[in-house]
């Protein structure tokens, strides 16, 4: 994707700068932007390491098991076709907990494991099942308690209150997730009707 977007950005802006006479601005912005990237990354480094360390501790303890327990009713609502107390259910809930905790790196491997388990019971190997579709949607929805990456960026830019966005993020992410889940449920119902 960036192989298309990046050259388009460069070509459009560089040629427009020549036309509009903004060449001087463009020249200084090139080097400014490059060093901006360096200072941001250095600031990001500290917060990123801190959170990955904390989340590593979380994944080694039973904090995750404790949190998984509370998710069961949610999982039964979202995945009515997944058998209770099956390994798939556990994998799905681990992925959800990792997402909620903002453990992006743990969420992806756990999620792919769950996808593989669900694929085993899939009669049409080239098509998503209802449960798999719901699972993918949930993973695109980014439901998390602490948006760590954004807080890290805000902190590195000298925000007076980097965590002030936590509450707005909760509202926005919950609304987005409800929209995604509702749309998925409607699509699933529509495809079931077509079958009958």
């Amino acid at each position: 994707m960036l192989n298309i977007v990046w050259p388009i950005f460069i070509i459009i802006s560089f040629s427009y700068a020549i036309f509009s006479g903004n060449l001087e601005k463009l020249n200084s912005s090139i080097f400014e932007s490059a060093s901006d990237a360096v200072s941001l990354s250095i600031n990001l480094l500290g917060t990123m390491c801190l959170w990955n360390g904390i989340m590593q501790v979380a994944s080694k303890t039973k904090v995750i098991d404790v949190l998984t327990k509370f998710l069961k009713p949610v999982i039964h609502f979202l995945f009515p076709k997944i058998r209770r107390n099956s390994p798939v259910e556990k994998e799905i809930s681990m992925n959800m907990v990792a997402n909620i905790l903002g453990l992006g790196n743990a969420a992806t491997p756990l999620g792919l494991k769950a996808m593989k388990s669900m694929q085993e019971g899939n009669p049409k190997k080239d098509t998503l099942t209802d449960s798999m579709a719901m699972f993918v949607i949930l993973n695109t929805a980014s439901i998390q308690i602490i948006p760590t990456t954004v807080i890290a960026i805000r902190n590195s830019l000298g925000s007076e209150n980097p965590t002030a966005i936590v509450f707005p993020v909760w509202i926005a992410t919950i609304c987005a997730a409800i929209a995604g889940i509702t749309a998925t449920k409607i699509f699933i119902r529509a495809s079931e009707k077509r079958k009958h």
Binding site: I10, N22, S29
Partner: peptide
């Protein structure tokens, strides 16, 4: 690239 987009005025 984004700095260029901004500074070029596009």
């Amino acid at each position: 690239a984004i700095g260029a987009l901004r500074s070029s005025g596009i």
